[in-house]
Design a protein around this nucleic acid. Sequence first.
DNA 1: CGAGCCCGGGG
DNA 2: GTGTACGGGCTCG
Length: 840
Amino acid sequence: MAKLVSEFYVLDVDHITGSNNEAIIRIFGVSDDGKKIVALDPNFTHYFYVTLKEGVDAGVFEEKLKKIYVREGERIFSVIKTEKLRKNYLGREVSAIKVYVNHPSAINKISDEIKKIEGYLDKNEFDIPFSKRYLIDNEICPLTKVRITGEEIDKKNYNVDYLVVIEKIENINGEMIKNPKFLAFDIETYSPRGDIKSNKNKIMAISVFSNYGEKKVFISKKLDGYDYIESFESEDKLIRRFIEYIKKESPDFLIGYNSDVFDFPYLRSKAMEHKISLNIGLDNSQLKFVKHGLYSAARIKGIIHIDLYHFIANVISNTLKTETLDLDSVAREILGYGKVKISWSEMWKIWENGGKDLVKICEYCLRDSELVEKLSEKFLPLMFEITKLVAQPLFEVSRMKFSQFVESYLIKEVKKFNELIPNRPDKDEVEKRKRKTYMGAFVYQPSPGLSENIVVFDFRSLYPSIIVSHNVCPSTINCYCCRGDGNVTPEIGEEKRRYWFCKKRKGIIPSILESLIERRSRIRKIMKEVKKGSSEYIILDARQQALKTIANSMYGYLGFARARWYCLECAESITAWGRSYITSVIEEAKEKGFDVIYGDTDSIMIALKDKTKEDAINFLEKINKKLPGMVLLELQGFYERGIFVSKKSEIEHGAKKKYALIDEKGEITIKGFEYVRRDWADIAKETQAKVLEMILKNKDVDGAMDYIRGIIKKIKNNEVPLRKMAIYTQMTKEFGDYASMGPHVVAAKKASDRGYKIGPGVLIEWVVTKGVGKISDRATLLEEAIEKNLTYDPDYYIKHQIIPATKRILEALGYSFEEIEGKQTRLGGFIEREEKNEGR
DNA sequence: CGAGCCCGGGG
DNA sequence: GTGTACGGGCTCG
């Protein structure tokens, strides 16, 4: 076959092992005209570093190192080359040896042998995966264009247009993929009794919706007469067709919502049941679940499977108003429309009845895919830009959290500083780090409760500004060269500790951060020249967001127990400076006669009272003239009314804001009241929502209090329907496997003894009934309680549901935690008062 | 108090 | 075949 020069966008990278136990990099890509390519690069050698004890003869060490090999059956793992180097390591210079190995897995196999060599100090960078090392060292970035020279070979069993062996590879100006093919998909399963875990039930339908005009529903029952619906008489035919369809379409991105945890596991288990191979990989390999922290991620070779839920939960959620991240809520907020409304019980009845109504299930299913595709169009630009920054495969990036973005970015960037990457902490170290806390942000709270006519100021990127302005970095802290001088922190803690940061050498983290910030402001300038809403604008906007995301995560990263560049003293110094800036602004505001009602971390809220908006803006301008360097205060907005929560001290780092505001348009912003989970009874959720609304919209505090009193009274008088008291908990294992019998387990066990069929995956609806003993003794299945005409335990629901759900709001209105939960509770007061009133 | 367990998303 | 992984809150014991 012929020599070939080819240009394509990198989609994914991994490696395979050749017949001589050599590791071969494998790149999956797509060209401008949509042709798929697999490119094999056998020319890259994996390596790691060994650092040496002081005074050790590196030459002698190196000679011993070179001879190391381990034999395992037919395979030999060995050192193939070494280099003596000086590397920077957190502000020091160290003597290191770069060790090249014949295969990535050799590192593990030979490391015990290396440890035995006299003078060994540590190994570094041994856990940087081969394919990532390849990307970093060759400055290749997923989603961008590369040019390769190579030889085309026989495609073997690859489902692609070309298979090439690379001779040379280079990136082309970071040119970004132009028209990627997105295909969203969704499955609907038959699930009577709310049992969605057990895979015994059939897949009813699978839908797909693309960004290039495809929309289809496959259904496993007879239904004719719709051109977008393909009907099959059985589930296995449905699955076979779906696989065939994916192979034919070969989308670049296959996108689901919670598909790592639901759609793909379900699909795979059904495929196994029918003995169907889910071989949708471009190398004809089967869909695989790879460990990704707590859960498994579904990986398809060559097609990037994105589970959009992760990105929304990990990255987008704090910018959303919705507290729950189900597809319907997220779509409503972002797209303005949501899922098709069909209740679960309706759904399986439609299925059982069959006939024409089945189209409702198809419509429902298709809408889900449509929402996922539309949401992808909104969020993938940001995901793509983050991918470009961290230069890691999108499969991983789409599942990462902020600290992982930072770490990946640092790993890529420190190369420019000849800096050795620190090792990841082991379990014990993580535990040790987690036990240490430090003083977090400043929270100012002189007047909790309800306020009106509010102006909010924010420090622009406070923590990043501090890091850069004061050169905060694990490589510059308490440096020898600036003893007694340096950038000295404010006093920290009761013992009035101070640290200092180097004034002579710029640290790696401040340098990297500063260039992130500079790049971002350059982009923001360009954006002003570009038409809003144009595709160029959207890309630039995503780019500046990506830069901001990483910049803003740097502080949190330094205090993150699993971080390679963890530095508690750095994090502590940053919050110390932060506290000193915000307190000085608050002092100044008070001096000028402003009524400061709330301050938290980097924001200050002021009730205007007799002052005007202009006064506020003038104050802002004066303050900014005094602030040093990059530190800048900005106007965030004006609000009509707000509830502020009292918190006396804030020890945790990254203090959370806890307030609810309503702006001049009637929009409510809620921060920090997080009680919208399914393990809360409806009554608690409803009460919370109602109370917030009454206070913010109508300023009706008394009404809200009355409302809570009313609910408590209703609960006491047994007037609340049992259904609203139900708490939902899932069985995750068999009864015998539970070490401790939580309430839902006891409830389920009781029901099971009475003949209910209950196993792992079943959602238990339980209530706490009246009586004596532990909660679990009184936990009963809702159905059983209704049947037996049992009554709920008012005490439990007041203390464990209503109070916690409204606690923070009450606190905000001057009712403290202790008053509510202590013996002499104010709510106790409510109740007693009620009773007295009634008695009168 | 620590240990154990569950939540999230999905039907 | 490269390598890890969440964080918060409740209940039991």
